[in-house]
Design a protein around this nucleic acid. Sequence first.
DNA 1: AATGAAAGCACACTGGT
DNA 2: ACCAGTGTGCTTTCATT
Lengths: 149, 149
Amino acid sequence: MDAIDRSLLRLLHTDARATYHDLGKAVRLSANTVSERVRRLRTSGVVRGYRAELDPAALGRQLVMVTDVRLSEGIDRHAFESGLDAIPQVVAGSRLTGEYDFQLRVVCIDATEFEGVVDTLKRNHGVRECRSRLVLHDLALDESRLLDL
Amino acid sequence: MDAIDRSLLRLLHTDARATYHDLGKAVRLSANTVSERVRRLRTSGVVRGYRAELDPAALGRQLVMVTDVRLSEGIDRHAFESGLDAIPQVVAGSRLTGEYDFQLRVVCIDATEFEGVVDTLKRNHGVRECRSRLVLHDLALDESRLLDL
DNA sequence: AATGAAAGCACACTGGT
DNA sequence: ACCAGTGTGCTTTCATT
């Protein structure tokens, strides 16, 4: 992992469909060499994959909530996690330390749909308590900033 | 936006570097037609971009914290947001309703580094109070799940 | 690790259904 | 909206340093 690799990671984070040829022009290396470096970055696990970033708003979903969740006694954490597959509005989540067990990000069309999600969580997934707040907006930051350190 | 477009979005979310030819094989369309559909999805804003997903742990950063933050009176929200550019450990964040003003995701090497981030936030960025918890792990969910609705 | 050459493919146009 | 053909340019392999 040298400075060139970090440049390549930044470039691929900006546009994962950039050609090796163009990446090579940017770092002054042949397409060939870039291809090998990127393959190494992939197999070493630094690059986990290449993802198309979707815009939920363009899919008609403009209500984003952050919901902290506490499970009832006797609910298996692992079962709860796999059960979330059944609720597509839950697009991300983490298990956290502290007062609550999990934090979920829930993307909905409107408050009615969100109400349905909360009811489902409580009725079918062993959620005892939840605490939700509206996402006003997301900040323009991302993980590629770690390359600056 | 029909079922084929949703398939293409799912495929591109799994591998944003897939060729139009391969995408076409999956949805039984010519590479040509796939290219046109994908271009429409891009210009309509459903696809915001293509990103390489990095693994912070592979970059030597294994401590991930979620930190809620409340700003002091008289601190401009917008100034706070742009000021975060100076702290690369902050890899994501949202402005939220509720008790706290923002929630940040902070990726560090160890507790000492995180302590530095918290001190910086309080000393230089107008943070009055913060409440942090450790991310035990992230759930295997993503925004492409919205396509199932 | 990096390079250049050459074969094999993918991509972007055009034109046509 | 979709497809086929074509020219251009990208990717990959191999020999070489």
